[in-house]
Design a protein around this nucleic acid. Structure first.
Lengths: 352, 352
DNA sequence: GTGAAAGCGCTAACAT
DNA sequence: ATGTTAGCGCTTTCAC
């Protein structure tokens, strides 16, 4: 910067003003400075700048989510990034793998860099530690799930409603033995979806059958194994509700694997002929849309949510806080959509 | 920091040393300081720190890619993030939409924040502007594609080889009218894959048919439309090679749509009965694996690459540069894998 | 082992 | 419209 000032024959302050685009500079002087900037390839040091400016804002936000590789969060992240760019902000990302320890590490590292705000997909556990950050000026918005012990702007979907409608849809098609396959029970969205499942059953007077409920499925393979087990029960489910995209994929694989072993496999395979036959006719509704869902056989009926809208919405809330909004914490609840494609409309086969 | 110093009854310098974990502090003093840090909730300001420290490193890298919402780049990004965390670095992300203007903006903003390095998926166009950044100390690694006019560490796959094998596979199954559906021709990977297509054909003495080649398909819908057009030709292709995941998905949709209109649709639908019949029997090999590829009908044969390995590899190269490696630019070329599942093994139907 | 002084690159506040 | 001075929060250097 001193070099630029020398080259242009002006003071540091004038360079500072020109670079900042302040209006109170004579056009001729500005031109000289701009030439010097170009000649020397000068770029303002935003880090040094940040140290001095009044409110110490960095035009950077942090995005803390479960797993960036998950298509759901990836789409959300892209939406956040777009909104941030529109506002002139950069985005730091950090995946937590749903571990609160990692979340704290990421938040801590982000705050040491003075992010102006955080968009957080909170892991299970108390988030009281975030109120400390907020007291020191960092704005926080939660997305996908609320944070326990933290009263902040939050963007979620109506998980109970979505699950309720999915299960009601299966009930409407004549099913009563409906399995629930879910992820870790300490994840808020999973609790909500399970609750929706339970509500739908009881509102129709269908007794919940504990042997048809599996929690804690973390990966596709877990769901695959779980559905194979379920179909091998003496009295298997005729329909399955899966509570996220990974589980849905695992179940699709598991069912098609079973169905393929059906013809003439007898007792040779791992699956019995009976379970194979049952698998071939099982109905399925999943939470979250998945790529190529309409190309499966049968096409997949799902409760879809809009991760891009969630990201955009969360970013908007955050920027309105950063710009000084002090209204009481807001809660945006987006609706889900039941996308009927075929797999949820299979009627139960009469058992011989 | 001054508050901490006062509370502990020591000087700023001692606090600095304790917080930095320097050894030359008396254990008793360190304990007092640590207590004060905890009591006051003090956290070191990494921004101010960075201004003063010797090499001005920020322990932050920038990841500049086409589109974070694309599953391929999302998986790559997650791998980069994991490697960065392992090394104690944070990651800024920016999507370019394959526009060089946006790429320059993102790089510029990252450099103003003094990122120690950049991992870049270069857009089409000259990247000479990056050598300026490198001269001022920012390390750069390219991934997925090399950057024109820039000699740096690069991680790619053997795109020509992958495409060649895909097309050879189709030739092996008796096809000779093989369509090529590709993205923008100015994208390096697309040039390479098209080149592989051409090579495979000519090595078997099959003349390339220009009417079966479509470039510039940016979205699923484009690919969908293109394949419908192709199948409606007087002499449609019997096989299709798609050069990325989005195009593959579009083609899968287009073909299944056509095939579904076949039975008894006559001249009523947009597609002719002939094109519908042809679509039902067309072979398909795609570049990039897609979720649930094995659940399609027929299951999708693809040339798969490993985006996580690419991300990890790029990050390793970058950190070795950041740590001071001055070896000549390295080029890591990963191999692709032909995953045979069914859609690529359909034999051409004899035309009546 | 600890502290005092200087200054990283920039901008707020006050001159001129 | 431009320049001067001081200082952001920390670390370097050097003295004790």
């Amino acid at each position: 910067m001193r070099d630029v000032a020398n080259a242009a024959g002006v003071s540091l302050m004038t360079v500072s003003r020109v670079v900042a685009g302040e209006p109170r500079v004579a056009p001729g002087t500005a031109a000289k400075v701009e030439k010097a900037v170009r000649d020397l390839g000068y770029q303002r040091d935003d880090i040094a700048r940040n140290l001095r400016i009044k409110d110490r804002t960095t035009s950077t936000i942090g995005l803390v989510l479960d797993d960036l590789a998950n298509p759901f969060f990836a789409v959300m992240a892209r939406a956040v990034e777009d909104e941030a760019r529109r506002q002139g902000y950069l985005v730091l990302v950090g995946s937590t793998n749903d571990e609160i320890r990692r979340e704290r590490e990421v938040v801590s590292a982000f705050c040491a860099r003075h992010v102006d705000g955080l968009i957080v997909v909170p892991t299970a556990g108390s988030h009281a530690f975030l109120s400390g950050r907020m007291r020191s000026g960092t704005k926080v918005v939660c997305v996908d799930r609320p944070a326990k012990g933290l009263d902040v702007d939050t963007v979620t979907i109506d998980n109970q409603d979505g699950a309720r409608r999915a299960v009601a849809h299966l009930l409407d098609h004549g099913h009563s033995r409906i399995a629930f396959l879910g992820d870790r029970e300490d994840i808020w969205t999973q609790q909500e979806r399970y609750s929706g499942y339970t509500q739908a059953l009881s509102s129709r007077g269908v007794r919940e059958e504990p042997s048809l409920v599996r929690h804690g499925l973390r990966a596709r393979a877990d769901a695959h194994a779980a559905v194979v087990e379920l179909m091998d029960l003496p009295n298997p489910p005729t329909a399955v509700f899966t509570s996220n995209d990974l589980i849905t994929m695992g179940v699709v694989e598991g069912l098609s694997r079973l169905a393929r072993t059906a013809p003439g496999s007898g007792a040779a395979g791992a699956a019995s002929a009976a379970s194979a036959a049952a698998a071939a006719g099982v109905a399925l509704v999943g939470f979250d849309d998945v790529a190529l869902a309409d190309q499966l056989n049968p096409p997949l009926t799902v409760v879809s949510q809009d991760p891009a809208a969630m990201g955009t919405s969360a970013a908007s809330l955050l920027f309105s806080r950063i710009e000084g909004s002090t209204s009481p914490p807001r809660s945006v609840v987006l609706m889900t959509r039941l996308v009927v494609r075929g797999s949820g409309e299979v009627r139960p086969t009469v058992r011989s």
